[in-house]
Design a protein around this nucleic acid. Structure first.
Lengths: 116, 116
DNA sequence: TTAAATCGTTACGGTTCCGTATCGAAGGCC
DNA sequence: GGCCTTCGATACGGAACCGTAACGATTTAA
């Protein structure tokens, strides 16, 4: 699906997508939460609290709290690492995969509608 | 700048952009704030508190508070409507235009880097 | 076997945002 | 003039998030 993405189209795409997310009033994630969620689902596992904190350049409590919030929404899950029980492995969930699938659809649909 | 934007590339683009925004730790806007800012700069003026509230499907205090916060950052400005002094006209600023320009560049650069 | 290091979580005070309800200012209408 | 509507802002109590600092659990090293 080739899309002619210039400066103006890029901003328009962000505008349309964010507007629909806000208007629908469904799952409401902060920038950090969204960034964490996308990292978990798009980058290679395993994901730990410490690893995510380093990658996002934030402190560990930020990750813990974000995982708490997203865990309550069933978007991610946590599991102790059996090899080193100090570590926590962050895992994907069906609910989280579903949410990201819809998000991807939303972006693609808006990118397509962008063309004149 | 044609970009092959499928489902997977769309999510990857969101991931890369949001990750860089979080990592840089600069201007940190919520989804609602970002949505308001993009609406002000991409849609036709004039923009009023009430109009933005309707468009985003949120209450008026949400808009007032977002404008307070973004006004402190000089991303937007407010002015009374001289024709009907009950209204407040939301205006763009140099600082805001600059921020959105950089944001557009970021999206375009990441979209370009997406291609294999 | 102690001592030190690492990992994720929690405690704390402070800040920001939320939704509901209400407010004063301004305009429209009789 | 008096009444009602509309506009944006504010008050309020509650919830969420922040950064710093400490904590318990676990592993590693001496």
């Amino acid at each position: 699906m080739p899309v002619d993405l210039g400066h103006s189209q890029a901003l328009r795409l962000l505008h349309d997508v964010s507007l629909q997310l806000v208007r629908d009033g469904g799952v409401d994630l902060s920038n950090r939460q969204m960034s964490i969620l996308l990292t978990i689902y798009l980058e290679l596992p395993p994901h730990t609290v410490r690893g995510l904190a380093q990658k996002l350049n934030v402190t560990k409590p930020v990750i813990t709290r974000a995982l708490d919030a997203m865990g309550d929404m069933d978007l991610v899950a946590r599991r102790r690492d059996p090899a080193d029980r100090r570590n926590v492995i962050v895992q994907r969930t069906v609910q989280g995969a579903l949410f990201l699938e819809k998000l991807g659809d939303l972006v693609v649909a808006n990118a397509r509608a962008l063309q004149p």
